[in-house]
Design a protein around this nucleic acid. Structure first.
Lengths: 337, 337
DNA sequence: ATCCTGTCTGACAACGCTGTCAGCACTGCG
DNA sequence: CGCAGTGCTGACAGCGTTGTCAGACAGGAT
C-alpha cells in the first residue's frame, strides 16, 4: 500500500494552501471558480480521499450516521440498511448499526451508550422505535438530528412514510372486487403505528365496499407467525367463518395459511389470504401470497438523505412520501359458492 | 451534552500522565499494578471513553472492521451481522458494512474502494466471496488481515466453519431411518463451497445407508427458490420419482414443496422434503421444513474475535469449528407404501 | 488620492490521542 | 562502590484535517 496522499500534497499540486483545498472539499463559499477547478483537478489526479478521523477530530463532526432498530424482520431491515448505506457512502459518511432491545428503558440506554461512544452526527430510526416517546424526548434534549422511517406521528420531523392506510384500503377493495363480503383482519402489534393505519384502511375499504364492519372478524395479532396462527385458529373456529383474511403483515398471513392448510381448507378456493410487506418468504410459501410491497431500500436511502441535508442545513429535512405496490399473487381468488 | 471527558482529565484524576492512562487503556505492558488500578478507577468514575477519531489518527489504526458480503439471504446475513457487531462493540471497534456485487472484478474493485476510503484494520468475509481467489490475492498483497465465515479452503487462514458435510450426512441418515431409499439431492450454487460439502455428505450418507448412488436423482440448483422449482419439476417428472428430496438450502426446499403441492402431492406423506440453513421461512411454510440450523450469530461473532485477536497478535487467529443442529419438523416423514 | 467594503486566500493553532525517547529508581553483579 | 540492566513513568512532538483570524486585493464611494 502506497503512502497516503494528504491534503498537503493536493495543495502543493494545485499551487494553493491546504485551507483552500479544504474549502473546496467542504463546499465552502469564497473560492474563485478557477481556483476551485484547479483543486478539483489535483484531487482527481492524486486520487485524494480525506482522512475521516483527521477530519472528524479537527472539525468535531464524526461523519457517522447511526441506524437504530429493533425490528425482527430481517428482510425489511436489510432493505432499509442497504438504502442507508448507499446514501451514506454517496456523501462520504459511515453507517453505524445499532440493534436495540425491546423495552423502553433499554432503548433509551442503548441509544445513549451509542451516542456517548460514537458521537454520531445523526440518527435514522425505524419502527417501532420511531414511536418511543422517551427516546424522542432524549434525542431532542441531546439535540441530535434524526430521521424516521414510517413514524406514527408524521406531522413534524423528517423522514419517509408510505400511505399505509391507502394500501390497506386498496387491498380490501381488491378482496371485495373478488366478491368477498366476510373479510377478516388480523391486527398487527399494538405498539406499531402500522397496525393502526392498516386497521383504518381495512375499515375504510369495508365502508367503501358497502360491507358492515363486524368486530367478530377482527382479531388482535402481534406481527409474528405464531400470532397469525392463533388468530387464524380463532377466525376459522367461527360459526360463519370469513372467506378472506387480510393479515397486517406477511408473517401473520403465513400463519393463517398454515392453519388453513392444516384444516384442509384450500387457499384461495376456500379462503383467500393476503398480507403486507412483500417479504421474500411471501413468494416462497404455497400458494404465493398477495401482499403490499414497501420500497424499503428507497425508504432507507431517502430518510438518510433528508437527515444529511438537515445536518448541513437545519432548515431542511422533510417528511417524504413514497409509493407502494399491490402484489397480486395466488393466495387470493374469487369467492366460491 | 456535557463537554467531553478527555484522557487529560483522567490523568489528572488518577495523578499520572496521559501516557500512562493510554498504556492502561491499550493493555500495554510496564505499568505497575497499583497504578493500573488507580487509572481504571478514574476511568470508571469519570465514565471516560476514548475518542475514536483521535485514537485512530494518532495511532494509525482505524478501529474499523469491515464485513464484506454478497449473500442474498437476509436472515443469514442479519445473523452474521449481529454477531460481528457484538464482537466489535465489545472490543471498542466499529463495524463497516460493505455489500459487494456478484462478479469477481467488481468484488475486488468494491473491496479496494472500501479499503482506500476507510482503511479498516481487518475484514470479515462471508460466502461466497470467501472463495474469490482474486480478492484473497489482493488482500494478501495489501497485507490486510481477514477472517472467513465458512470458506471453501479451511486448511489455512482464520475464521469459523461448520462440519457441513457431516450435517448433510446426518440429514440423509435421518431420511434413510424413515425408510427412504430413493433420496434425491438438489445441489446448491456451484460457486459456493457449501454446495460441494453438502453433496459429499449426501453421498457419504447414501453409502453408509447402503443405498446406491443414482445420478438421475441429483439435480443442479443454484440456491434460489426458482432453481428449486425447476429442480423439483425435473425430479417429479421422473418415471420412478424420489420419495424424499434433500435440497442444499431452504429456499430451494421451499421451491420443491411448492411444486409438490401444486401437483397435489402431500408433504411428507407422498414426498419428504428437507433443506439446510433454518431460515425463519422454513418454520413458516406448510409443512414446516426439516432443516439444519447454522449458528449464524455465533459464527459472525467468533470470526470477528479471531480477527481482532490476530490484529493484536499476528501469531494467533485460528479456524474455529462450530456445532450445527438438525431441526426435525413436519416436512419429513416415514415412507408410505 | 483615500478610504471603505467585500471577496478571496493563507499561516497557524488546535482537535485528543499515541509513538518516541529520555529519565528515574531500583536490582544484581563484578 | 560503581555500573549495566530492567521496569516504570512522563514530556513532547506529531497524526491529517478544520477553525480562526489576519492579510491581500479589487472595485466603488468619497
Amino acid at each position: 500500500m502506497a503512502v497516503r496522499v494528504r491534503i498537503e500534497d493536493v495543495a502543493a499540486a494545485a499551487g494553493v494552501s491546504m485551507k483552500t483545498v479544504s474549502r473546496v472539499l467542504n463546499h465552502e463559499p469564497n473560492v474563485r471558480e478557477d481556483t476551485r477547478l484547479k483543486v478539483t483537478r489535483a484531487v482527481e489526479e492524486l486520487k485524494y480521499t480525506p482522512h475521516l478521523s483527521a477530519r472528524s477530530l479537527a472539525g468535531s463532526k464524526s461523519f457517522l450516521v447511526a441506524l437504530l432498530y429493533n425490528n425482527p424482520s430481517a428482510s425489511y431491515l436489510m432493505g432499509v440498511i442497504e438504502g442507508v448505506l448507499k446514501a451514506c457512502s454517496d456523501e462520504n459518511y459511515h453507517t453505524l448499526l445499532c440493534p436495540l432491545e425491546d423495552d423502553e428503558a433499554r432503548i433509551v440506554a442503548g441509544a445513549e451508550a451509542l451516542i456517548a461512544r460514537s458521537q454520531p452526527d445523526g440518527l435514522v430510526l425505524t419502527p417501532p422505535i420511531t414511536d418511543s416517546p422517551a427516546l424522542l424526548a432524549r434525542l431532542a434534549e441531546l439535540e441530535i438530528p434524526y430521521a424516521c422511517v414510517s413514524p406514527k406521528d408524521q406531522s413534524h420531523g423528517m423522514g419517509v412514510a408510505m400511505d399505509e392506510t391507502r394500501a390497506a384500503y386498496d387491498m380490501v377493495m381488491h378482496l371485495a372486487s373478488l366478491g368477498h363480503r366476510r373479510i377478516a383482519h388480523v391486527i398487527g402489534h399494538p405498539a406499531h403505528g402500522a397496525s393502526g393505519w392498516r386497521l383504518t384502511g381495512y375499515r375504510q375499504g369495508l365502508e367503501r365496499a358497502g360491507i358492515k364492519f363486524d368486530p367478530a372478524l377482527v382479531v388482535q395479532g402481534e406481527f409474528s407467525f405464531e400470532s397469525g396462527v392463533r388468530a387464524a385458529s380463532a377466525l376459522l373456529d367461527l360459526e360463519r367463518r370469513p372467506s378472506a383474511v387480510f393479515a397486517a403483515n406477511d408473517d401473520m398471513a403465513a400463519g393463517v395459511i398454515r392453519v388453513a392448510l392444516e384444516r384442509n381448507l384450500r387457499v384461495p378456493e376456500d379462503l383467500s389470504v393476503c398480507g403486507f410487506d412483500d417479504t421474500p418468504m411471501s413468494r416462497q410459501i404455497f400458494p404465493a401470497l398477495t401482499t403490499v410491497q414497501q420500497p424499503t431500500y428507497e425508504m432507507g436511502r431517502i430518510a438518510t438523505l433528508e437527515l444529511l441535508a438537515s445536518i448541513r442545513n437545519p432548515e431542511s429535512g422533510r417528511m417524504v412520501r413514497v409509493p407502494y405496490a399491490l402484489k397480486l399473487r395466488q393466495s387470493t381468488g374469487p369467492v366460491q359458492e
